[in-house]
Each structure stands twice: as C-alpha cells, then as structure tokens.
Design a protein around this nucleic acid. Structure first.
Lengths: 221, 221
DNA sequence: ATCATAGGATTGTCAAACAATCCGAAGCTA
DNA sequence: TAGCTTCGGATTGTTTGACAATCCTATGAT
C-alpha cells in the first residue's frame, strides 16, 4: 500500500482550481481565458498556466484556438445529445457491472448515499442533492470495476455540466430522479444486471429529456 | 466553408510526430521520455515539448509521474479488456447509427474500403490491411454522425495499439476479420441497425479474444 | 460609409536559470 | 560479502524575460 503524500505541484492545483471555476460556472462558456489574466489570478507563471490549460483541453473543458488562445468550451445542444447517447450506454454498462460485482459493503454505502439524496430532496437542499448524487455515482463507478468506463463517464459528466450552469433549476424533477436512482439501486441489490442496465439507461434518458425542456425554456426566455 | 490553411504550429507537429512514434512502437511502452532528449530529437524548446506531452497525457498515450516525468503508457491486460468492453458498446452503437444514417455515397465508400481490405488480405499485405481497416473505420464513424462516439473510439483504438505493437502478427485471423466486417457492412446496407450493432459487437469480441490468445502466446514465449 | 492602416493586445516559441527531487554508485560498517 | 549511508549527477518543476507572429480595434483617409 502506497501512502505517499505528494506536495501537489503548482500545476495540479491550477488545473483543479480552473476546472472548479469552469464547471461551477464562474467562467462562462465561450469566455476567453487570457493567459496573463490567469497568471495573475493563480499567481503562477505563464508556462504553468499553459500546461494547465492543455490538460483542461484534454478534458474538453477548454478549447484552444490557434492564435486566439483558450476559451471555455461552448456545448451545443447537438453535442449534448451525443454525450447523453454515450452516457446512456456507459451508465447502463456501469450499472450492470455493479449489479454483478458490488460487495455487500458497497451496496450499503449506495443505500446510504441514496438516502442522503432523498433527504436532500425532501429538504429542497439543492447543494446537498448534487453532493449526494455525485457520491452515489462515485460508488456505482467504483463498484463497476471498469476504470475506463469510470474515466470516460467522469469526463462526460463534467462536460454536461457546461450546459447545466444556466439550466440548473429543474428542481421539480428531483423526486422523479430519486425514484429512478432507487430503481437502479434495487436492481443492483437484486444482482440483476439486465434490470440495472435498463434502469440506468432510463435514468439518463429522463435526464436528457429534462435538459431538453430546460433548454427550450431558456431559449424562449 | 472555411478553407483556412494554418501554418501548423511547432507543438501540433510535435504531438503528431510523438503520437506516431508511440503507436508505431518506435517508443516502447514503459520507456521513459526524457524532455531534453525530445528537445534534441524534435528540435524544439522544452516548454513546447512539455505542452506536447501534456496533450499526449490527455490521450492516455503517455503517463506523467510527478518528479519522474513522462513515459509511454504501459497497458495492462486487465485494462485492455476494459477498453474492449467499452469498444464493444460504442462500436455497436456506431454501426447501428451508421445503418440508420449512412448515405448511399458513404455505403459505396465503405464497400470500396472493404474490398481494398479483402484484397490486402488476399495479397497478405499487412500494411495495406491496417490502412484499409483504418479507412473503413473512419467511414463508419463519419457516417454514424456522433462526434463524441468518434472521439472516444479514436482514443481507445490508439490505446489498444499500445498492446498490439508486439502482438501484431495474428495475420491468421485476417480472413475471419474480413468476414466480420463484411457482416457489419451488409447490415448497414440493409439499414438494419440492430443487426449492425450485433455484428460490430461480435467483431470486437473476436478481436478481444484474438488479442488474448496473442497475449498468451507472448506470455509463454 | 467604406476601406486601409497603424497600434495595442495576445499568443507561440525560445533561452537560461535554479531549487527540488530522484536514482545510482561509491564508500563505509558490520 | 551484505547492507546501510552518503554523495553527486541527472531530471523535472517552475520562474523570468524576451521577441516574432498574429489578431482585433480604433483611427484616419478616400
């Protein structure tokens, strides 16, 4: 077991901070990220900033246009649909694998996370909801045992967040969402891969539909 | 239509050359990539080399260990299996979408590419085979119309290539492979998404099994 | 009003430097 | 000889400064 504690280089911190700033909407999609500006904000040199930006480019959170530099990725609705398509497949797979492989302890943790989510829904605690959702997802992805699925889905979630910064609301859908997650967990507990896959795909499908509606509202607003 | 011709900055070229060197096996998996060395080989500055390496890290072709620097990714068999799992899903999806969306012209091109592949198989032209395969894949991915699937699969193919550098042989499987591809194309021509998905998944499954055998041979050798 | 031009802002790239870290090899000890 | 310590070279992480190439904008000319 490796208990190394790395002093966490300047760049890694920069990447984390920038990613956080982007997914949280502090930097709006389309906004240009001027290197000199980021140097000032982060207190690091241009070389490090550029490397950090390259990493975020790899995560598709930033687009670097030649001779124009970096800006926050703008996600078209068309591309968002494509992402949801892939998510449907991969989250279905992840759920199926989790149903087959999750240990008893992991099932317990999922149950706890889901209860936390339901509590947050009842309390209309938006922040708690996203935290609990993330926790639930982490557990499923850990249980599925496929690091590649994990890695890709993390990336896709971050990218979808680029949309959500504005259409966050939709809290009306939370109860449905809770029911969908519960269905997934039920299938995982029953060790029913096919059912888990179906439930997870349904959940993504619903999320996509909800995003579409939110998008339409935004469009007219 | 944008017919801009970009002078193609130093870094982009560096990334391309390094990627080529890696997937072609010129740099072996696990080999360390010393920055100063790459500066000499590429004739560019350290800053540019480092940015190029960051990009390749994003493509998972290079691993950068803190305070040890970059080296060519070593793909474990375990991880390769996970990649094949995802490929099965996504190539199935791509084939299904292509079956639904491909234009007549695209079907013709696929037919041509497949015939080229079969010709290369008959002529035992290994290089021609990989070229024709790549071409066929490009056409299917273009026809499927999902840029996210395209992008992810390209990445996964490159990563699987990290394995193949040694286990390239397996030319005995080429005729089977040709039959599998033909089955995919047949389904696409019939506009039968379900059949196309099934055929594509079968193809990946077979490729995975073949890789496993090649791996086992290597292991004992 | 339209076009050309100039100037500022920004990126792309290079060079040089230095501290921190890692790794191997020499030397010392038992 | 085996094992431990120490030392020094190699390599990375990061900074600073510089300059050409490119883009954008505002100014000025027709």
């Amino acid at each position: 077991m490796d208990l190394r504690v790395t002093p966490l280089g300047v760049q890694s911190q920069a990447v984390d901070k920038l990613r956080e700033a982007i997914v949280s909407g502090h930097f709006q999609p389309g906004q240009r990220l001027v290197e000199a500006e980021l140097c000032r904000l982060l207190g690091i040199s241009r070389g490090s900033v550029r490397e950090a930006l390259r990493r975020l480019e790899g995560e598709r959170l930033v687009v670097i246009t030649p001779n124009r530099g970096p800006s926050v990725t703008e996600l078209s609705w068309e591309e968002a649909v494509q992402i949801y398509d892939v998510r449907r497949l991969l989250e279905g797979e992840a759920a199926a694998l989790a149903a087959r492989r999750a240990t008893a302890a992991q099932r317990e943790e999922m149950e706890a996370a889901l209860e936390a989510f339901e509590a947050a829904v009842a309390a209309e605690d938006a922040l708690g909801r996203v935290g609990a959702t993330a926790c639930f997802y982490d557990l499923v992805l850990a249980a599925c045992g496929n690091a590649v699925v994990d890695e890709i889905l993390r990336g896709l979630h971050a990218r979808i967040n680029l949309l959500r910064s504005r259409s966050m609301s939709r809290q009306g859908r939370a109860p449905e969402s809770a029911r969908e997650l519960r269905a997934i967990l039920a299938a995982i507990r029953d060790r029913a891969p096919a059912a888990a896959r179906k439930a997870a795909m349904l959940h993504v499908q619903a999320a996509c539909a909800a995003a579409k509606e939110a998008m339409a509202e935004r469009r007219v607003a």
